[in-house]
Simulated scan of single mutants.
Amino acid sequence: MIRHLVLFKLNDGVERDDPRVVAGVEAFRALGSLIEELRFWELGWNISERPIAYDFAINSAVDDADALKRYLEHPAHQEGVALWREFATWVVADYTY
């Protein structure tokens, strides 16, 4: 199995209730039921107020590298990524477990 973690940081001046952010969250929330390669899917807003904390996280899992590739290339995933590019930056970690 491969764990796929993504941490998002909203751009300066962008708030959670921004309509673009709301649309981005909903687009990613839907992926759990749209992409069959996903074995585990959860996401949520950070509750920590530490200055180094990111704002939003996705925690997911797929069977193997091929499944990760299919997930990343899936049109619904690509559409969500395009939305998030407008208002956030992110970091990714993929590891086997």
Rank of each mutant, 00 (worst) to 15 (best):
H4Y: 06
L5S: 11
V6R: 06
V6N: 08
L7P: 09
L7N: 07
L7A: 14
F8C: 00
F8S: 00
K9A: 07
L10M: 01
N11Q: 07
N11K: 13
D12A: 14
G13C: 03
V14I: 04
V14K: 05
E15G: 11
E15Q: 14
E15F: 09
D17G: 00
D17F: 07
D18K: 01
P19I: 06
V21C: 01
V21G: 03
V22R: 10
G24N: 05
E26K: 14
A27F: 02
A30L: 13
L31Q: 04
G32Q: 13
G32S: 08
S33R: 06
L34S: 09
L34V: 12
E36W: 13
E37K: 00
E37I: 07
L38M: 10
L38F: 07
R39M: 13
R39L: 15
R39G: 13
F40M: 11
F40L: 14
W41M: 00
L43D: 12
W45E: 07
N46R: 06
N46G: 09
I47S: 15
I47R: 15
S48D: 04
S48P: 02
S48H: 01
E49D: 15
E49P: 14
E49T: 12
R50C: 10
R50V: 02
P51K: 09
I52L: 15
I52V: 14
I52F: 15
A53H: 07
Y54D: 11
Y54A: 13
Y54E: 12
D55L: 03
F56L: 01
F56R: 02
A57E: 06
I58M: 03
I58P: 11
I58H: 05
I58G: 04
I58K: 04
A61T: 01
V62F: 07
D64G: 06
D66G: 08
D66T: 11
D66H: 11
A67F: 05
L68P: 02
R70K: 05
L72A: 12
E73S: 13
E73I: 09
H74P: 00
P75H: 03
P75V: 03
A76V: 09
Q78E: 15
Q78N: 12
G80L: 02
V81W: 08
R85M: 08
E86Y: 06
E86M: 13
F87M: 04
W90H: 09
W90P: 05
V91C: 12
A93T: 10
A93W: 08
D94G: 01
